[in-house]
Design a protein around this nucleic acid. Structure first.
Lengths: 152, 152
DNA sequence: TATGAAAGAACCTGGCC
DNA sequence: GGCCAGGTTCTTTCATA
């Protein structure tokens, strides 16, 4: 769907603070509260905004360790097989198939290094996985919520 | 800070829907609306909840392509140098120093493959970068908002 | 220290222009 | 898109365990 400048500004405001009132957003972008509400409703209906969520400090919940794991799979493995298999683990917060030597890259959050190890063991034991290559995160430098910026 | 079962349930409800009313959350966890509000206020004051944000479909904003880029840096490069340098690019949505051969891993969102290429060129041109190794994302399999799950 | 109830203020929502 | 009215929610205070 087509987004104009106001839509993008409204999205930016909601990414910044999803609990901002329609009146506050309206003042920011130059619209009345009800006009903002109508646009937000439309953005939700069309699937541009998929929901509202709380930003939580992962450490506060006990997720103090993270890792990236490259997956090397058997030749005929389908992406959906990987998706199905890894989505059973809440520790796998992100997964994607990629170009290059590895077939997929997983992002894992765990309570400690031993926990990471345990999850990788489980994943490496899956039938279509040939081998894995993992990197523990030493320090997180950047973590931007998606939608914070708009292209061009 | 210490979180009890109710705190975790409230956080879960807010990660699910940051615009749920206090009364709705209260009914879900077995508290009155005002008790829920007090706990949410406390969770925000202590930094457990860092904010509320809209979940946006990146494609809808024009971010249709993503890539992971491994950074190989000169021996004496400090993490803060990398952080400072890459945070200037809105395309870099995540960055972390990691164990293994590479020094850092970047997650990039862009409008197309040419855009990815342009950003990598800029990053590769930074003085402390020796070389880069990038993987384009073919398909995203999993993308869980942080805080959706709770350890153990 | 944490809770539930209650009341006024602020906000949302839908109809109308 | 703006304005307005009725219903809902938020926010604070107070009393209680």
């Amino acid at each position: 769907m087509e987004l104009d400048r106001l839509d993008r500004e409204i999205i930016g405001a909601l990414v910044e603070d999803a609990r901002a009132t329609y009146a506050e957003i309206g003042q920011q972008v130059g619209l009345s509260a009800s006009a903002v509400k109508r646009r937000v409703d439309r953005l939700r209906d069309t699937g541009t905004i998929t929901g509202f969520t709380a930003r939580v400090a992962p450490q506060a919940l006990g997720w103090t360790t993270e890792a990236y794991v490259e997956l090397f799979c058997q030749g005929k493995t389908k992406p959906s097989d990987i998706a199905l298999a890894v989505s059973r683990y809440p520790e796998v917060v992100s997964a994607a198939t990629i170009t290059g030597e590895a077939d997929a890259l997983l992002h894992i959050r765990a309570t400690d290094v031993r926990h990471v190890e345990r999850v990788i063991e489980h994943i490496a034991a899956m039938p279509f996985v040939v081998r894995t290559k993992s990197s523990i995160v030493l320090s997180r430098l950047v973590d931007t919520p998606p939608g914070a910026a708009t292209p061009d």
